[in-house]
């Protein structure tokens, strides 16, 4: 019986961390209608930033995360204007917009990953805090909940947040209402990247990582977004928890290696039968 309780708690904690990792992807997907293929690369970037700050300044990830949030926001803001702005303003139709944005964010990911590989190769890294694995998981989960609450309050209570939601629902109408849509899109992308890097920063204190770790979280984030829908951060966290529980409970009964197979099968089934998320309306 104890095994099940352990599995359950572990599933929730891991799920919260996964949810945290997916939050930025969900925001960008929901607002810009862009599936950000550089998401994983920015998560990795956050991990290495966390590592370097810890190594050279001895500042632990749970403090440096605030610094990473700011760096992420700046990088994300720049990245929007470098890779997406032209596509947003010039695409002839939605189909072209979708394809171009997938490719441009993928090229961002190549640029970042290539740079990290150049410096760090694929050596596994870890941040050794005087904390147990359980404690670091707890800490990261705590941040996950804080971020969820903060992002929800921001989106629903502030002017900027409301503008972001307006743009995500109907960009043309928002434009007519006098919203500076370019700025809103850039800020949304920046927040999304900032969250991705912050997630990386925190995950780095829980699990060992390498330059190629981000892609794993990116793929899980796809599953989570499809599970939880794109509407709000709470959905994302719930999606994360479902995935965390699924992984841990499947792990009890089947070979751990088959878990990704089950995950992606769920992803495909969801896309087909519930494209608006588990809690969204049906197709």
């Amino acid at each position: 019986m104890n095994v099940y309780i352990d599995t359950f708690i572990n599933g929730i904690l891991i799920g919260l961390i996964y949810g945290l990792a997916a939050m930025g992807l969900a925001l960008i997907w929901g607002v810009l209608k862009v599936i950000n293929l550089s998401h994983g690369a920015f998560i990795t970037l956050g991990m290495f930033l966390s590592y370097l700050i810890f190594k050279y300044f001895h500042i632990p990830p749970y403090i440096s995360v605030f610094f990473t949030l700011i760096i992420g926001f700046i990088l994300g803001f720049l990245a929007y204007f470098i890779s997406l702005h032209k596509i947003v303003s010039h695409a002839k139709n939605f189909k072209e917009y979708e394809l171009s944005s997938l490719l441009s964010t993928f090229s961002l990911s190549l640029i970042i990953t290539g740079f990290l590989l150049f410096i760090f190769a694929t050596t596994p890294m870890a941040i050794n805090l005087p904390l147990s694995l359980f404690e670091t998981k707890l800490l990261a989960s705590f941040f996950s909940i804080i971020f969820t609450i903060a992002l929800t309050l921001f989106l629903y209570k502030t002017y900027m947040g409301k503008a972001i939601r307006a743009v995500s629902q109907n960009i043309d109408a928002a434009k007519l209402m006098g919203v500076n849509t370019t700025l809103i899109l850039a800020i949304s992308f920046a927040i999304g990247i900032s969250l991705a890097m912050a997630a990386g920063n925190l995950i780095a204190m829980v699990f060992p990582f390498s330059t190629l770790s981000g892609i794993l979280y990116e793929l899980k984030s796809f599953v989570i977004c499809v599970l939880g829908g794109l509407g709000n951060p709470v959905g994302t966290i719930v999606g994360g928890i479902i995935l965390g529980l699924l992984e841990n409970f499947f792990g009890l009964f089947v070979n751990q290696g088959l878990v990704p197979f089950i995950e992606f099968t769920i992803l495909i089934l969801l896309l087909i039968f519930k494209p608006n998320g588990l809690f969204g309306g049906s197709k």
Partner: peptide, 26 residues
């Protein structure tokens, strides 16, 4: 999957590749 359009199709195809990779891995 061909009932899915645009980015959803793209994500589904990534999912298929990862699913089969993981299956073969095992």
């Amino acid at each position: 999957v061909l009932n899915l359009r645009g980015a959803y199709f793209a994500i589904a195809t990534i999912g298929i590749n990862e699913a089969i990779k993981s299956l073969v891995n095992n």
